[in-house]
Design a protein around this nucleic acid. Sequence first.
DNA 1: GTCTATACTTGGATAGAC
DNA 2: GTCTATCCAAGTATAGAC
Lengths: 196, 196
Amino acid sequence: MVQDTNDVKAKILGAAKKLFARNGFEGTTVRQICEEAGVALALVSYHFGGKEKVFYALFESSIPNYATAIYTLQDPEADFSHFIHEFVRLRQTEPELINLLQQEIIMQSPRMEKLQAYVYTLWKQLRNILEAGRAKGCFQFTSLKQTLHFIIGALIFTRNVPALDDLFETTVMEENSESVDEIAACTVHFLLNGLK
Amino acid sequence: MVQDTNDVKAKILGAAKKLFARNGFEGTTVRQICEEAGVALALVSYHFGGKEKVFYALFESSIPNYATAIYTLQDPEADFSHFIHEFVRLRQTEPELINLLQQEIIMQSPRMEKLQAYVYTLWKQLRNILEAGRAKGCFQFTSLKQTLHFIIGALIFTRNVPALDDLFETTVMEENSESVDEIAACTVHFLLNGLK
DNA sequence: GTCTATACTTGGATAGAC
DNA sequence: GTCTATCCAAGTATAGAC
């Protein structure tokens, strides 16, 4: 596989990531992707075998590398903090991908079937941490299901939401350009308190 | 306007709500809507003037009636609790609508422009409550922006997510069939702790 | 007001030249 | 490997009968 091939494939993936995140899978056309990527229409089919294959290729490259951390569950609070930090980092690194994933989850799209495996291991870790914490007495909550929904919802909800920007128009510049670690620390603090 | 007209319009709205929530605006066809509603293809255009008008009609009926509560901000904790209860009730009453709204928000769809007004008043209330609580010292948080994102994310994230159901397969039946008030109380508890 | 049939547009995928 | 031109399926909206 020569260099040019990788260039084109990467350009298509980049364009698709941007457009899928913004307009959804159905709302994005192959023509848009190719125009954004600056390549001919036929190349999506040639390199990937169709629009849907491009979609899956987006996740195959990024997500599996993420959920590799092993949690001992000896110190659930530390594990929780680590998990949140990792997720916030992923969300900052790949906002479009998280955005897209969120769409597919709430739509219960037919594509979720193949994405399920990635997502499951991710949230299974979180569930294990929560249960270990409850057993050890450092977390208190009545409904595991509700608690998981709170946390996942708070984590996955995209930060780049113009519809919310209006809410900050009159605010003093108190919190612009926060670093990943600051955001993660803030998130851990909020969620950990919720578990008391 | 005779009764039959309302019946057909209601059937179309019901079908559209269900399908939009599940497949998104772009992922839903007028043919699907009409088939689901059991009416002829032409009637969407006849009664509403097109697919997009059906979409807006869905929100015009439900959302404005919601955001009418007035908050005095004398007791931010009580206001917060009331706000959460109202939202949880809305989410339980109109899960498809919240689902759809969430999609449109995170996609930053072109339709959000017309929905913005509804959404803005809703979250402006929440923002006011948070700021009042911070001023009075009953809420502590560093970033208003992050905090709003946590709460909105936790609230708006759909509860009916098959992709998450697998996470509960081995759980004992600890928390099935929770009532609206139970869920709301649980939510208030979690989020209020996060604000300490 | 509701139906069937159809016009018109757009989308995904491919054929074939280079 | 990449392009242009084209095919075919599916979409929205409308015309016209009832």
